[in-house]
Amino acid sequence: MPHPPVVARAVVLAGPSGIGKSRLAALTGLPVLRLDDYYRSGDDPALPLITHGANAGLVDWDDPRSWRAQDAVRAVAELAGTGRTVAPVYDIARNGPCGTHEVTLDGARLFVAEGIFAQQIVADCRGRGVLAAAFCLRQRPLVTFWRRLTRDLREHRKPPLVLVRRGWALMRDQQRVIAEAELLGCTVVSPAEADARIRRLASG
Rank of each mutant, 00 (worst) to 15 (best):
P2C: 13
H3G: 07
A8N: 03
R9S: 14
V11N: 05
V11D: 04
V11I: 14
V12Y: 11
L13E: 00
P16A: 13
G18E: 09
S22D: 10
R23A: 12
A25I: 00
A26V: 04
L27C: 12
T28Y: 03
L30Y: 10
P31E: 01
P31H: 08
L35Q: 02
D36M: 04
Y38E: 07
Y39E: 01
R40W: 05
G42Y: 05
G42W: 11
D43V: 13
D44R: 10
P48N: 00
H52T: 11
H52M: 07
N55E: 14
L58I: 06
V59Y: 12
D60S: 14
W61P: 01
R65D: 14
R68V: 08
Q70L: 03
A72I: 03
V76G: 02
A77Y: 04
L79R: 01
A80C: 13
A80G: 09
G81Y: 02
T82K: 13
G83Y: 04
T85F: 10
V89S: 03
V89I: 05
D91R: 13
N95V: 00
P97K: 01
G99M: 07
T100E: 15
V103A: 02
T104H: 12
L105E: 11
A108E: 12
A108R: 09
R109T: 11
L110G: 02
L110A: 12
L110I: 06
L110S: 06
F111H: 03
F111L: 01
V112A: 01
A113P: 06
E114V: 06
A118D: 10
Q119W: 02
Q119L: 04
Q120M: 14
I121V: 09
V122N: 09
A123R: 15
D124T: 14
G127V: 04
G129Y: 00
L137E: 02
Q139K: 09
R140K: 14
R140N: 12
L142Y: 07
V143D: 10
F145S: 05
F145I: 00
W146P: 00
T150G: 10
R154P: 07
R154D: 06
P159E: 10
V162T: 11
V164A: 13
R165D: 12
G167N: 06
G167Q: 01
G167S: 08
R172P: 00
R176F: 07
A179G: 10
E180R: 14
E182V: 05
L184S: 07
G185D: 07
C186W: 01
T187K: 11
V188R: 08
P191I: 03
A192Y: 11
D195Q: 15
D195K: 15
R197A: 11
R197N: 03
R197V: 08
R197M: 07
I198Y: 02
R200C: 06
L201W: 04
A202P: 04
G204M: 03
